[in-house]
Amino acid sequence: MRKRSKNRLRIFLYLLPTFFFLFFFTYFPYLSSFIDSFAERRGNLISFVGLKNYERMAFDSVFHTVLWNNFLYSILTVPLTMLFALGLALLLNRKIAGSAFYRTAFFYPTVIPMAAASMIWLYLFLPTYGIINRFITLWGGKSVEWVGDPQYAMISIVIVGIWKYVGYYMMIFLTALQAIPKSLLESAYLDGAGPVRRFGSIVLPMISSTSFFILIIAVINSFQAVDQVYLMTRGGPGNATNLMVYYIYQNAFSFWNFQYASTLTVFLVTLLLLITLFFFKVVEPRVYYESGET
C-alpha cells in the first residue's frame, strides 16, 4: 500500500515536466487560439465578435488560394519524394562499391538547415546568371523565371522540399529493406518469381509499415512547410506560393490581425489532427505489419 502511494507521487513527478511543457506550449496554445478566434481588434480595443472570423475565412479568396496551394504542394512533394527515396534505397540495397559514398551524398541535405538550402537554391534559380538557367539555355532550352513566374515558383519550392528530405526518407526505406530476410527473397527467386513479382509480393508488403510512417510525416510536414516560402518567394508572385503557415504569419505579423491569424491556426491544427486521425483510423488497418509490435 505504502509503496503504491509513494510511486504515485513518483509517477506524477516523473511526468510533470514533460506534461507541463506539453500543456503550455502545445495544448494551451491551441485553446487560446480557439478563444482568440472569436475576437477582433480595433485600434487597441479587443471585442467579442462571435463567428465573424470564421465567416471571413469562408469567403477569404486569399485563404482559398493558400489552401489550394498547400494541397498542391503536398500532392507534388509527398509522392515524388517517397518515390525517389524508395528508388534510391532499392539501388543502394545491394553490395556495391562506394555505397557508403552514395549514402553520404544522398543523406547530407538532412543536416543542412532549410534556411541555408533556400539560399543555395535561390542562387541556383537566379533568372539570368543562375546556373540552372545557364544549363537550360546551353542545351537549347528556354530560360525560366524560377521564382518570378507563379507556376515555376511553386515548382521551385517543391524542388527544395524534395531535395531536403529525399535522403532522409531513403535512409529509412533502406533500413526497412535491409530488414527483409534474404531467405524469403531467395526462395521466391527459386520459385521462379521475376524481379517485378518479387518486389510486388514480398518487398512492398514488407516495407508497407515503413511507407505508411513516411507517408504520415511527409504529409504532415508538407502542411507545415514555411522556411523556403519565407526565404525564397515570400508567398509570391502574388500569392502563388503562399502556404498555410506563411499566411498565418502574414496575418499576425504583417497585418497585425492576431485574431484572424488565430482562426487560421485553429483551422490548420484541426486539419492536421484530422489528417492524423484519417491515417490511423482509415489507412493503418490496411497496412501489413510483419510482426505484432509496432
Partner: peptide, 21 residues
Amino acid sequence: YSNSQIRQTLKTFIADVLLQK
C-alpha cells in the same frame, strides 16, 4: 491605415495582372 495589408493586396493584384491571370 492597414498599409501593409493594402500593399500586399496591391502587390498580388499587380502580379495577377502582369502575369495575365
